[in-house]
């Protein structure tokens, strides 16, 4: 009975101290350098929840919300490359490693987990930074995605327009849930 009670206590404690954060502002952008033209796009409609007690993090990107400079590029991105009518969402499920909620200043952290893009799920590990600013948390990361890994094809005609890999920059500002 005593074991039972203490276990219950631990469970309750973890619920009470487990702090969940949700996105207040988000930015996911990508950039690819190519000989003819650089391609970049930005998405501010991504949502995320981070549980600082367990380190678990999930995010969901509506892929159709990437805004490009060129209308035609945006259309091709949706129709031909990311096929967003079939795969409207990209998600990440994973853990943040090395985060300490009570530390001040910038912390080097890692995110490990499964990224789903264009219907393909891959294990990824990326590094980034975390900063606690009073009650708010800012997570930033910059990493490379290889298009072939996610079955995103580049037609031969347009090879000069699209690089094999793109640099992704994410910046999320969280508030307590």
């Amino acid at each position: 009975m005593r074991i039972y009670l203490s276990l219950l206590f631990i469970l309750i404690a973890s619920v009470v101290f487990g702090q969940k954060f949700t996105t207040e502002q988000s930015s996911v952008s990508f950039y690819s350098h190519a000989a003819v033209e650089d391609i970049s796009a930005k998405n501010t409609a991504t949502t995320s929840i981070f549980n600082s007690a367990t380190g678990e993090i999930v995010f969901s990107i509506p892929v159709t919300d990437f805004v490009f400079e060129k209308s035609l590029m945006q259309e091709h991105f949706n129709e031909k490359y990311l096929e967003t009518e079939t795969y409207p969402k990209s998600t990440f499920k994973g853990k943040i490693i090395g985060f300490n909620e009570s530390a001040t200043g910038e912390q080097q952290v890692k995110a490990q987990g499964k990224l789903t893009l264009h219907g393909v799920t891959k294990d990824i590990e990326v590094s980034g930074t975390a900063v606690m600013k009073s009650t708010k948390l800012v997570l930033k990361s910059k990493f490379i995605i290889v298009l072939e890994d996610y079955n995103v094809k580049r037609p031969k005609f347009a090879w000069q327009n699209i690089a094999e890999q793109v640099e992704v920059t994410v910046e999320f500002t969280y508030k307590p849930l």
């Binding site: 949502t47 929840i49 678990e56 129709e79 998600t91 499920k93 987990g113």
Partner: peptide, 23 residues
């Protein structure tokens, strides 16, 4: 299943969206 739960929780907070077939 905690991460899946967290994903379910995230989906609950998302506003319903409209998908357009423009092409």
């Amino acid at each position: 299943l905690a991460q899946d739960d967290l994903m379910a929780e995230l989906e609950k907070t998302q506003k319903p969206r409209t998908q357009y077939f423009d092409q």
